[in-house]
Design a protein around this nucleic acid. Structure first.
Length: 423
RNA sequence: GCGAGUGUAGCUCAGUUGGUUAGAGCACUAGAUUGUGGUCCUAGGGGUCGUCAGUUCAACUCUGAUCACUCGCCCCA
């Protein structure tokens, strides 16, 4: 394809140009909104001890069982490139003894690269980026609803107006365990009819059968026990309360009883964000509540809720054209070498006012220099020739006007800064 | 990890049942034009046809392997 011998490693991608502009745009918006809701930025290492992920995400999950970049370092320690952000944040809270209690919650935001050894596809890379939020300590329907609202607000802020929210509740730990027992019992009856994948899921991660795309599985699922019947009264009240708050907030959502998530640590509220415009069918963000996670890693026994947004998936949905907006770029152009010095003085003066400008002095003739300036997306040219030096003036050329419209204006050089500031 | 497809210039792609020097548009460089770019005109540079092997007098074309990307499954963000 290319002459280059050095291609990036499979599933990895260089981030530059318009994609990087989009990336920064999303992060800028996220930081602004995070500040409003009282979230503080945290940055944790990309590498953790393997056990951090095994214990939090769960040994049986696909992420841990087959997708982690795990290797031994030179000290023979098993370390892993983080496949997601939550576990590392929890570990950081524990190691730094950051205070978090029921009444003194902690709100953290993070973003950065994650790694999963998966088959690359559209919107799926082996190194990808997540933007995530964790609200630890507080346990209330308001917290859950606000977290969902926050996720929704970020997407709206960057221009995604048709995002759909799917929510479900897995209930407290005991409800969830009872439910799992019930569906294992139910699916065991139909084991022969299940797809091969679901037969494996039945042993390893029975909840996932509910999420099967296999038509036959779907039919069996439709008759399966519903999570709703296994939720405690409190669970139901809690979940209904969230729905009420979301209604009040004006956020549209859909309750999806078959929604389950692939990471073991979730309990109670779980949710996913999708954009249903045909461009991409998978979730671009998702999250939920985790009751035991911090405690499992040696921290206090408090609950938390969080979510992550897939940066690449979100970037994909943003319109390239919105990120191609031309800046106001000024080019200072000496007509010939004789005017280089004089033009350079002007250029330095402009820069000292923090105005974006280029000094276009290469090119054999003026025609060439104008062409170069044009390629730099310059929209205003300041031309310095023989006459301009003599008269202490500057010829201003507007690139977006035609000759008939009056492309050129000659102004006094002493007024040039004021002139630029008002244009 | 499983299934399918694609790979020809910087980009988007043509290329006949295997046949001589592999093309187009856009982009790029230069000229027309020594004080004005974009439209038009003229000329030019750029390819081991993804890579390796095989079949053949002859391979961009056929076969095998391999790599990368895309789509579906799985999983997830």
């Amino acid at each position: 394809m290319t002459k280059t011998i050095f291609n990036p490693v499979r599933g990895m991608k260089d981030l530059y140009g318009i994609d990087l502009t989009k990336y920064q745009y999303i992060i800028d918006n996220a930081l602004r909104i995070a500040n409003k809701y009282g979230y503080k930025l945290i940055e944790t290492p990309i590498v953790e001890n393997t056990e951090v992920f095994q214990r939090s995400i769960g040994d049986e999950t696909d992420v841990v069982a087959k997708e982690m970049y795990t290797f031994k370092d030179k000290g023979d320690e098993s370390i892993t490139l983080r496949p997601e952000g939550t576990a590392g944040v929890m570990r950081a809270i524990v190691s730094n003894n950051i205070s978090v209690t029921k009444n003194n919650p902690l709100k953290l935001m993070y973003y950065g690269p994650m790694f999963r050894y998966d088959r690359p596809q559209k919107g799926r890379y082996r190194q990808f980026h997540q933007l995530g939020f964790e609200n630890i300590g507080a346990m209330s329907p308001y917290t859950d609803a606000l977290t969902i609202a926050l996720a929704h607000e970020i997407l709206t802020a960057v221009g995604i107006f048709d995002c759909q929210v799917y929510i479900n509740s897995l209930g407290e730990l005991s409800s969830r365990e009872d439910y799992i027992k019930a569906i294992v019992k139910y699916f065991s009856i139909y084991e022969d009819k299940l797809s091969e994948e679901s037969k494996i899921r039945l042993k390893k991660n029975p909840l996932r059968i509910l999420d099967s795309k296999d038509n036959n599985d779907k039919e069996i699922c439709s008759m399966a026990p519903k999570i709703y019947d296994y939720l405690s009264k409190n669970d139901i009240k809690y979940f209904e309360c969230i729905c009420d708050i979301l209604d009040n907030y004006g956020i549209k959502y859909e309750i999806d009883n078959l929604l389950v998530r692939g990471l073991d640590y979730y309990s109670h509220t779980i949710f996913e964000l999708k954009v249903n415009n045909g461009q991409y069918k998978d979730a671009i963000g998702g999250g939920g509540r985790y009751d035991r996670l911090l405690n499992i890693l040696g921290g206090p026994d408090v609950s938390g809720i969080g979510f992550a947004i897939g940066m690449e998936r979100l970037m994909m949905l943003l319109d390239d054209n919105k990120f191609k907006l031309k800046e106001n770029i000024i080019s200072v152009i000496p007509v010939s070498e004789n005017e280089n010095e004089s033009a350079f003085e002007l250029y330095k003066n402009i820069l000292s006012y923090d105005i974006r400008a280029e000094f276009v002095h290469i090119g054999n003739n003026l025609s060439k220099k104008v062409e170069i300036a044009s390629k730099l997306d310059s929209n205003i040219l300041l031309i310095i020739g023989n006459d301009e030096v003599k008269d202490n003036t500057v010829t201003v050329t507007y690139m977006n006007k035609t000759e008939e419209e009056g492309r050129n204006t000659v102004i006094n050089r002493n007024n040039i800064i004021n002139f630029l500031k008002y244009n």
